[in-house]
């Protein structure tokens, strides 16, 4: 049996248990707020069990990327998480400029001049359109940008 299916099947069984616990916890009748969690508990249990069936066990192996690709994916996602984390304190324009510059330099062999020009264009355009034109309350940071 493929390990991935075993893990996913177990996760679905866990979700089934969670749904059952939630259905039992709720203070409402069984034709009210409890109904759907209870139905889902049964559905998850059935689907979780289905993952242990031989037909699914013989399914294709997951196509996990090689180590360099995995690092690239991890790096891009890490930069994205960091961007979202610093956005409120740094402000939209500086954080966006840094985010775009780092990704442009990391994903392609752009020269500093090209990367800086593209960064300025993207960051300024998004600042003007979303913050000023559409009036989105994006964080300003200490520089007021």
């Amino acid at each position: 049996m493929r390990r991935a299916n075993l893990v996913c099947g177990s996760l679905l069984l866990a979700l089934g248990a969670l749904s059952l616990v939630e259905a039992l916890r709720l203070k409402d009748d069984w034709q009210g707020a409890r109904l759907m969690p209870a139905v889902l508990a049964v559905v998850f249990a059935g689907l979780g069990a289905g993952h242990f069936a031989p037909a699914l066990a013989a399914a294709e192996r997951p196509a996990w990327p090689d180590v360099p690709s995995r690092r690239r994916v991890g790096f891009v996602f890490g930069v994205l998480v960091l961007y979202v984390a610093v956005l409120p304190s740094l402000g939209f324009l500086p954080a966006t400029a840094l985010f775009v510059l780092v990704l442009l330099r990391a994903l392609a062999a752009f020269s500093w001049t090209v990367a800086l020009a593209l960064t300025a264009a993207i960051a300024l355009a998004s600042h003007v359109v979303f913050k000023h034109w559409l009036g989105m309350p994006l964080p300003s940071g200490p520089l007021g940008l």
Partner: peptide, 17 residues
Amino acid sequence: YAVMAPLILLFSVLGAF
């Protein structure tokens, strides 16, 4: 794609926000 990827991620953050 090196230009598109930051743009798509930026729009994604803005869209979700």
